[in-house]
């Protein structure tokens, strides 16, 4: 095996492990932050790991004998992990040769699709409401993500994620990229399933929506996938839209990126903490407005700003 192939494999493993292992830690930090806003002590930072570990040991209750129902949660997590290899984390995406920004958008959708299919397979009416809501939210949010990524592509003249980052690192911020980053940040709120857009899960309205019938390990995997997804999307945001400072040294860049991701997620968590949940049509209207923001970014990009 050549050196290049080995380094690709190695980087893939690093990205996957980062997404897999750091996601609960970040979630733990966010929970702690939420507790601070609630004026209380809050759970230990490791709580999310404990939650996952506990769930893995729990009985797996199934309402449907189908194979889809059994495997979809694992595939959901897997698709998020694949997404992690397509997203730059400290350096160019390891599987950049296998997928560009369009692929990123679609693979991100795959994880949502699998979660929705799991929901529908569970037969619960609440899961259907939740899945339907999740799809609508996806319809509202994904265009924003698409357009912001296209802004990067138009600026850099390529669809390759790594090349967009390289271009942005070299050329510094432009108006279009700044506006697009704001739009992507707003989209991150929904992608991470945080308030006011945790509409599909809505514990108080539909008992956790798509998750209502899941227990044990499969619930753990879906939760894990959600956390990993928010981490990966935060990486996407900071690497494409705030790539500086970039030293060129992988370890330093990765550390910087992790710090930036933390900052972004903290902002997300603060917004999460001080908002009630919106109704799904209100969320869609909101993201329609955000879509206009991202389209204006695209307009800037087209005229070269």
């Amino acid at each position: 095996m050549s050196n290049g192939a080995l380094s690709v494999l190695g980087l893939c493993a690093v990205n996957v492990l980062l997404a897999l292992l750091l996601a609960p830690l970040y979630e733990g930090i966010l929970r702690k932050l939420r507790a601070v806003i609630h004026s209380r002590q809050g759970p230990p930072l490791t709580q999310s790991y404990l939650d996952l570990l506990k769930l893995l040991g729990k009985e797996d209750l199934r309402t449907s004998p189908g194979a889809l129902y059994a495997f979809a949660p694992a595939l959901t997590l897997a698709s998020v992990l694949v997404l992690a290899t397509l997203v730059p984390m400290g350096t160019a995406p390891p599987l950049g040769f296998a997928g560009d920004i369009i692929v990123i958008v679609y693979v991100a959708a795959v994880s949502a699709v699998l979660a929705i299919l799991t929901a529908f397979a569970s037969q619960s009416p609440y899961a259907f409401v939740g899945g339907s809501r999740e799809m609508m939210l996806l319809l509202a949010v994904e265009p924003v993500v698409v357009v912001t990524l296209i802004v990067g592509a138009v600026n850099a003249g390529t669809l390759a994620t790594g090349d967009i980052v390289t271009w942005h690192t070299a050329n510094g911020p432009t108006i279009s990229m700044v506006v697009a980053s704001v739009a992507l940040f707003l989209a991150l709120q929904a992608q991470a399933g945080k308030l006011p857009f945790d509409i599909p899960e809505a514990d108080q309205e539909i008992m956790g929506g798509p998750l209502v019938e899941l227990s044990g390990a499969r619930l753990a995997l879906l939760r894990w996938a959600l956390w990993a997804k928010q981490l990966v999307f935060a990486f996407l945001l900071v690497e494409i839209f705030v790539p500086w400072p970039s030293t060129g040294t992988y370890y330093i860049d990765l550390t910087l990126a992790l710090a930036k991701v933390l900052l972004v997620l903290i902002l997300v968590a603060v917004v999460d903490a001080v908002n009630p949940r919106l109704r799904v049509e209100q969320a869609m209207r909101y993201y329609a407005r955000v879509a206009f923001v991202s389209l204006s970014a695209l307009a800037f990009a087209v005229i070269g700003m």
């Binding site: 601070v36 004026s39 209380r40 001080v274």
Partner: peptide, 20 residues
Amino acid sequence: MLLSKLREALICLKAGRVTL
């Protein structure tokens, strides 16, 4: 809107941690 939300967060922080 975001700013007013951040202000709300600050109001909340003022009470400090009260857990017994």
